[in-house]
Design a protein around this nucleic acid. Structure first.
Length: 1098
RNA sequence: GGGCGUGUAGCUCAGUUGGUUAGAGCGCCGCCCUGAUAAGGCGGAGGUCGGAGGUUCAAAUCCUCCCACGCCCA
């Protein structure tokens, strides 16, 4: 086997990446052959279908991406190792606001007017040029993390093939009648003349609200006016309504009251005016001296006021007063639950085009949608008096006009948090904007039914957050008034807006527009906006494209089809249909209502199936201090820096080991101050070094011994119990890993491995150490089996941890298998082309595993006793007594007596059943057993139990019973506790009692001293850089009156020293020095001198 | 404001159908072991189980309310 090299994990990983590249391992994992090689005659691999959710490439990858990327790698690697072809194409989300915002900044053009002045072609060209700016960095990081994903055969949402499929998807929905034009109230930046997304609104100026102490939108002072509306059927009686947006009053169409709130009709004494208002709020007006004394005349609930007709404030939209059938239409009182009595009058002015609540009320009441201004907030000629004025500037004129007309009850200023434009800093206007919807509400049942087929990790996201969302799914607003995106393929007649066609392919557009086939090579706005054609339905009409583009979620949701240019590419058509739903996807919790939702909605609408079968939802990664990771705060380490310091394997293992793979947030760090990623170093120590150490151990001795593995090594059945045990343990480990992988529970993989590691290093190797070290000449069967077993264990581990630790496992596999010429078959050159180990049930012996666990328990207890007594393990003790009523425990101790004796350095072990005389016994009631039986009597019985005499307890323990408070009790109703008797070196736990005999005679003392001496000699050997197999000539110097000198007089102990330290010569007090390596040391305070010289090879 | 989560040792997290000594790892301190080890073992200190009520013989666990944090939606 190859000699040991210095251990540098990141360097190992870089070499493995090279190796994968040289051998084209990734390609072969997917295709089962090398590039350009004949596929061969065998059946193709079955597919395991993975969909990659596309990230925006406008930023650099952060830990959230690395986490998702790790999940997206671990799972596919597992299935690939089970013989599946796992296609992993990287996806890029190219469209949408992030890139448009960046480009707006770079070009310094903001808003509709400036962009259109620059020209959509130039703007989009800049977006196209800039959107993939970080792809190389992405690739570097993703590859360095060990994630296998195909960047060459990637998909981009801006590819014409992708966009054409999006058109097709949309056309299917159009055919189904799912697409309709509607309105939605959105915030608009008047100077930019464009609606803003929530994201942009949130970027607006923020300010701390002194009242609530919380950050929120910037505060502003708006006019707060109270206006009187005269009842038509009761002239002289008014409704007092409140608003902070006078500019919406010309568009007033209704007044809203809360159905359950009681309103009062009052007479203002001074003026004689009759008015309706909520009485509590009236009192506030009076407190502020805005309204004089009143007399209350009548009270009515809001629901009773509904339907009252009032005279319009302004004449502009009087035509909506009545419908054609003469029924009242607008300018009436309506009810609305959102009305509050916190401020104002309890009667709220309604302009359906200018508020979300107003819009909903208007929709319910069938009110017209009146929006007499453009997106810049400038009044049009439908409001002639204010035409050309901007909304907020018109406030003053409107208030003045109302004042002149004596329609103003009160004028005040209202300070509140209000969203402002992130760019121009001016207040946003909410207004109804035409948008395109997909009908989703009628699909709820089917969406829920399909969701039942999805395996969610964690479960609650599927049933809770996602399921609830599906249950109340709203129609999907899928158009955006933007530039860089897939254009909606709707062409509309300029003569008749109802005359529309939906284009489903490039070919269709070319045909309709009379263009040469193949002449359209791109589908962005600059390429298709100018294409027009004659209407088929409207004579003389011209069809022109509407201006909207798709919400980019629609594009990522179309990815199962669009990444394969479905249905246009005949070679992929069947493939796409066969591969829906995908077997597996994984993204962050924030995608629940994003990508998860859009995938689900579209596949349900198009194919009546879910889009994926299994999904792992990961949580958000926070910095070590619990805050969001922030470049400014520098509260997290650079990802590549961490990888180059500690290795990608360790980072991967760390990332998938916590609840973050079950959608819970994770703090990245060891503690709040760990901004260097030291936690990842901890993972190196916990998960990788032990494996490296085990490997080192094998190689060190195998090389010294000239042991070489053969093919038979991996299948021969050993005879030693220790070997049989570790083989069983490893198979159980494989079985558990498989269970976790198949349940998509990644968080248990590393903990299972750590437990396995402990058994391997701290019992199997520790206990077996001497088996390997018997001198190069000895070649007995047991030694060969020891090597073979350890080798086999390491090879199995290299296979089954490969999905999690792809680098180090590959490294081990190369060293253990490939380097020694044991790689088999065409796929023998990488562990990732190997099969994941199949559980070998014939090797599993659960009883043996339990027995070893019990033996280890006994050892642990006894070690603790030595610790408490301050007796080092090098000092032999005469005996250990183990007492237990559990026959299994006694059997285990007998079975492994030699191991336990050796581990604890005791000469004999005595096993007994009864621990009387060793420990004192006490008992408590077993609440779990008795609670159900006794109910309320539980407490008195429990007290009585604690007062039982130890003698009675022993009787019960031996099968007797007792009656307390009228209740018969036997051993299983009690929990026994054993405490060491004074003077006894004893301890008890879990029904096992161990007692150490610490009386030693001279012989034992001498043996202990010699073992101390051996330790000092070994330290000197190590300090002198001797090879483990070097033979030495040894001299020990010590005073003749010391105990050690006495010990050295014993022939047997001198033999022990020589055997343990490979000393061919042992001289005691030879006089002069003359050795090449010398040392001074002490044992029990007695000084001694050591000298060693490497003996000439024989 | 609504939905879904989370809150247990200094940190990261386990904690079975409710059952009486609430565990592990890391970190800290002490001791021990070691010719595989960038190691390992044993022990110790460290908990009002977010808070308040309630149900129950018995609550970290079930219920209600509140507080804090996260994500999403308003």
């Amino acid at each position: 086997m190859a000699p040991l090299a210095p251990f540098d994990l990141p360097a190992i990983e870089r070499r493995i990446i090279e190796l994968w590249g040289t051998y084209e391992v990734e390609y072969r994992s997917l295709h089962g052959r090398r590039p350009g090689e004949d596929a061969g005659g065998g059946p193709p691999k079955p597919s395991f279908v993975f969909f990659d959710g596309p990230p925006f490439a406008t930023g650099l990858p952060h830990y959230g991406h690395l986490l998702a990327g790790t999940i997206k790698d671990v799972v596919p690697r597992y299935w690939a190792m089970n013989g599946y072809a796992v296609e992993r194409r990287f996806g890029w989300d190219c469209h949408g606001l992030p890139i448009e915002s960046l480009v707006e900044d770079e070009l310094d053009v903001h808003g509709r007017a400036e962009i259109e002045a620059l020209g959509v072609p130039k703007f989009n060209a800049a977006c196209r040029a800039g959107v993939l700016r970080y792809t190389q960095e992405w690739r570097k990081v993703v590859e360095r993390m060990g994630r296998w994903v195909d960047f060459d055969d990637d998909y981009k949402t801006m590819d014409p093939t992708f966009m054409e499929s999006v058109w097709w998807v949309f056309a299917q929905l159009w055919e189904q009648g799912r697409i309709y034009e509607g309105h939605r109230v959105q915030p608009v930046s008047p100077l930019l003349g464009t609606p803003l997304s929530n994201f942009e609104v949130a970027q607006g100026p923020q300010e701390r609200n002194p009242k609530t102490g919380k950050d929120g939108h910037k505060l502003r002072d708006d006019p707060s006016i109270t206006v009187r509306f005269e009842l038509e059927d009761e002239p002289g009686t008014f409704l007092w309504a409140w608003t902070t947006t006078p500019w919406t009053l010309p568009s007033n169409l209704a007044l809203a009251v809360h159905p359950d709130v009681v309103y009062a009709k009052v007479r203002v004494v001074e003026t004689g005016e009759l008015a309706w208002i909520e009485p509590g709020l009236l009192a506030q007006y009076q407190e502020r001296k805005r309204v004089g004394e009143t007399q209350e005349l009548e009270r009515r609930k809001g629901s009773e006021l509904a339907g009252l007709a009032y005279a319009p404030l302004f004449p502009y939209f009087a035509e909506y007063r009545e419908r054609e059938d003469g029924s009242r239409w607008a300018f009436k009182v309506v009810v609305a639950d959102y009305v509050t009595t916190d401020t104002g009058t309890g009667i709220v002015h309604q302009a359906p085009a200018f508020g979300e609540d107003d819009f909903e009320v208007g929709k319910r009441e069938g009110l017209p949608l009146v929006r007499p201004m453009d997106l810049n907030g400038v009044f049009d000629e439908r409001v002639p008096e204010f035409a050309g004025q901007r909304a907020k500037q018109a406030d003053k004129g409107i208030v003045l006009k109302l004042k002149d007309a004596k329609q103003l009850v009160d004028q005040d200023v209202y300070r509140h948090a209000y969203p402002h434009c992130y760019r121009t800093d001016e207040p946003l206007l909410y207004m109804a904007i035409s948008t395109w919807f997909m009908k989703v509400e009628d699909m709820r049942e089917q969406l829920l039914a399909n969701n039942d087929e999805i395996h969610w990790v964690p479960k609650h996201v599927g049933s809770g957050r996602f399921g609830n969302w599906l249950g109340v799914a709203r129609d999907w607003n899928l158009s955006r008034n933007r530039y860089w995106g897939t254009p909606l393929p709707i062409w509309r007649c300029d003569e008749d807006p109802a005359d529309m066609v939906c284009i489903s392919s490039i070919a269709e557009l070319e045909r309709r527009a009379g263009l040469e086939p193949g002449s359209i090579t791109d589908l962005h706005r600059e390429s298709v906006d100018d294409i027009s054609f004659a209407s088929e339905r409207t004579p003389g009409g011209t069809m022109r494209r509407i201006s909207e583009v798709f919400d980019c979620w629609f594009e990522s949701g179309s990815m199962p089809y669009a990444q394969n240019h479905y249905p246009f590419d005949p070679s992929k058509k069947q493939y796409v249909e066969d591969n829906l739903p995908a077997d597996f996807i994984a993204e962050g919790l924030d995608q629940t209502r994003g990508w998860f939702y859009t995938l689900h909605v579209l596949s349900t609408a198009l194919f009546q199936r879910p889009a994926f079968k299994n999904v792992i939802v990961n949580g958000l990664i926070l910095a070590a201090d619990g805050k969001k990771m922030s470049k400014r705060l520098q509260n997290y380490p650079d990802p590549l820096g961490v990888v180059e310091a500690f290795g990608a394997d360790a980072l991967r293992a760390y990332l998938i080991s916590g609840p973050v793979v079950r959608a819970e947030p994770m703090r990245f760090g060891r503690d709040a101050k760990d901004t260097k990623g030291l936690i990842v170093r901890d993972m190196v120590k916990a998960a990788i070094l032990p494996l490296q150490n085990a490997y080192n151990f094998l190689v060190t001795y195998a090389r010294a011994d000239g042991w070489v593995p053969t093919r038979e090594t991996l299948s021969a059945r050993p005879t030693s119990e220790l070997d049989l045990w570790i083989l069983s343990r490893v198979q159980s480990f494989v079985a558990r890993l498989r269970g976790e992988f198949e349940a998509y529970n990644l968080d248990n993989l590393v903990p299972e491995w750590l437990a396995m590691c402990d058994e391997l290093n701290n019992w199997y190797i520790r206990r077996g150490r001497r088996r390997y070290w018997r001198g190069a000449s000895e070649d007995d069967q047991d030694k060969r089996e020891a090597y073979a077993t350890l080798y086999r264990v390491l090879v199995t581990i290299a296979h089954c941890m490969a999905p999690v630790l792809p680098f180090f496992c590959e490294h081990l596999y190369q060293r253990l298998v490939v380097d020694v010429g044991l790689a088999e078959g065409p796929d023998g050159d990488s562990v990732h082309l190997q099969r994941f180990p199949v559980v070998d049930e014939s090797l599993i012996d659960l009883e043996l595993e339990r027995q070893v666990a019990r033996a280890r328990k006994v050892v642990g207890l006894a070690m603790a006793l030595r610790e408490a007594e301050r007796i080092g393990v090098r000092r032999p003790l005469p005996s250990l007594t183990v007492a237990s009523r559990d026959p299994e425990v006694r059997a285990a101790v007998v079975r492994f007596a030699a191991e336990i004796e050796s581990e604890l350095n005791v000469k004999t072990i005595e096993v007994v059943e009864d621990d009387a005389g060793l420990v004192s016994l006490s008992a408590k009631a077993n609440f779990k057993v008795l609670g159900r039986k006794l109910g309320k009597k539980m407490k008195v019985v429990a007290t009585a139990v604690e007062q039982l005499e130890p003698a009675r307890l022993r009787e019960i323990l031996e099968g007797g019973s007792v009656e307390l408070e009228g209740e018969p009790l036997s051993a299983e109703d009690l929990l026994f506790h054993r405490a060491p008797l004074p003077g006894r070196v004893a301890d008890s736990a879990e029904g096992i009692t161990v007692v150490l005999d610490t009386t030693i005679d001279v012989a034992l003392e001498q043996e202990g001293l010699v073992r101390e001496l051996i330790n000092r000699i070994q330290n000197l050997r190590k300090g002198s850089d001797l090879d483990v197999s070097d033979r030495i000539e040894l001299a020990v110097t010590c005073a003749e009156q010391t105990k050690l000198f006495g010990a050295l007089a014993r022939e047997d102990l001198r033999g022990l020293i020589q055997a343990e330290t490979l000393a061919s010569v042992l001289e005691v007090n030879p006089g002069s020095g003359g050795h090449t390596h010398q040392g001074e040391d002490e044992i029990d305070g007695e000084q001694l001198g050591l000298g060693i010289t490497v003996a000439p090879a024989r």
